[in-house]
Design a protein around this nucleic acid. Sequence first.
DNA 1: CGTTTGCTTGACAGCATTCAACGTTGGTGG
DNA 2: CCACCAACGTTGAATGCTGTCAAGCAAACG
Lengths: 238, 238
Amino acid sequence: MKFEAMKVACSNCNLRELCLPVGLSEGDMQRIDQLVGTRRALKRAEVLFRAGDRFEALFAVRTGFFKTRVSAEDGRDQVTGFQMAGELLGLDGISTDRHSCDAVALEDSQVCQIPYARLEDFSHQVPELQRQFHKVMSREIVRDHGVMLLLGSMRAEARLAAFLLNLTQRLQARGFSGTSLVLRMTREEIGSYLGLKLETVSRAFSRFQDDGLLEVKQRDIRVLDEGGLRSLLNEAPC
Amino acid sequence: MKFEAMKVACSNCNLRELCLPVGLSEGDMQRIDQLVGTRRALKRAEVLFRAGDRFEALFAVRTGFFKTRVSAEDGRDQVTGFQMAGELLGLDGISTDRHSCDAVALEDSQVCQIPYARLEDFSHQVPELQRQFHKVMSREIVRDHGVMLLLGSMRAEARLAAFLLNLTQRLQARGFSGTSLVLRMTREEIGSYLGLKLETVSRAFSRFQDDGLLEVKQRDIRVLDEGGLRSLLNEAPC
DNA sequence: CGTTTGCTTGACAGCATTCAACGTTGGTGG
DNA sequence: CCACCAACGTTGAATGCTGTCAAGCAAACG
């Protein structure tokens, strides 16, 4: 039912253990049920927000998959992250009241819209929410530092291995298999995220398959030797 | 006087326009004067906090210069940022109650210690402080995305140009010359930050000097042609 | 004044990019 | 249903940027 589908309540949401309300008490949880405004559905390739757009709300991914990307003046751009269920989009917008990156759905998706003014307001009333929100922002900073380490000091194959291990780990936390996954993004998007060209990504996939680490069928990936992937991370300098 | 030197009050601090209290009213400013605990002095090369340390406070750089770095298990590490007066250190610690990177003084420095529990408390009482704090965290996220773009898609010389332009801009905001600066970090540290080897950094400096963009005398840098540097940013792909 | 640390420069090697061709998949319309 | 097309992916060969290794120099420090 359409009406039912649009009804929103964190306290009933099966993502509450992954999303912003982690760790809130039953009471607090019900108080923040009004926090989330409308829910919004996006088709594949649709843009949720764009750099320069006025920042008014954060978005929590409810279903589907997103990428965020920043652009230089010359059009060159860089994917800065891939977001799945329970993860927040739009934190970059707080600093200047305008978004500084684009967010694009990589498959048909739904997001919960969290008006930022309301979030600030509720943070006052619910200390635990404030704590959680700070943790979410801090986690994003820590994640970004990890990506910097990856981009600054790893070879192509190590980057792809790190990427895949990160994906499987996050999927597993959401109840999916830890060994088989379907990529929602193209080789080019993976390459952009990892600071590599799409051909290099493709070659690394082939190499992993030859070495018996993966089974690769286009976007269907099966991890055959997680330990082998993991050992690539600690490999020689870039 | 020692006592005077250790006295701490944001409302009297000449950095208040750059630091956490930006935009606070006189009244609010005085309320948060108790926010900052002790001030701490560090010698060059001294470590402010280390990855794994329990997170208890943020630090605002009062004088001096810092670097932060993350480390992989294998010892390889990456500089994630350089911080100067008015900038905050330790935001990464909020997410897990433990620091995830090291902070090291690159010259004799002073920091203001901001007990985090107290900051969360004050945020409740002073909405404007909360807003500011969120903006600071968001700005860090935006900055990190910029570094990702740099690491993922720029050539060595473009990276160094971007780095220098960023430094001069921040120094200028603090009342220093926009054209001459003294680097507080080694070529190796610059290289680590930019995902390059120290030899590559050195070569890029030499190149810039040959091309008349810079005057380089070890760590003394003079920018001769800012436009020339800027034009490197929009250059061909990586 | 000697030692250590940091910086510069050259020669060479290697990894990722570039350019190009071909294969595969999925959607669209005849 | 099939043909066609566009988008995506794979692979090969050659180029080039950055890393590696090595030597020498300069500056800082005790």
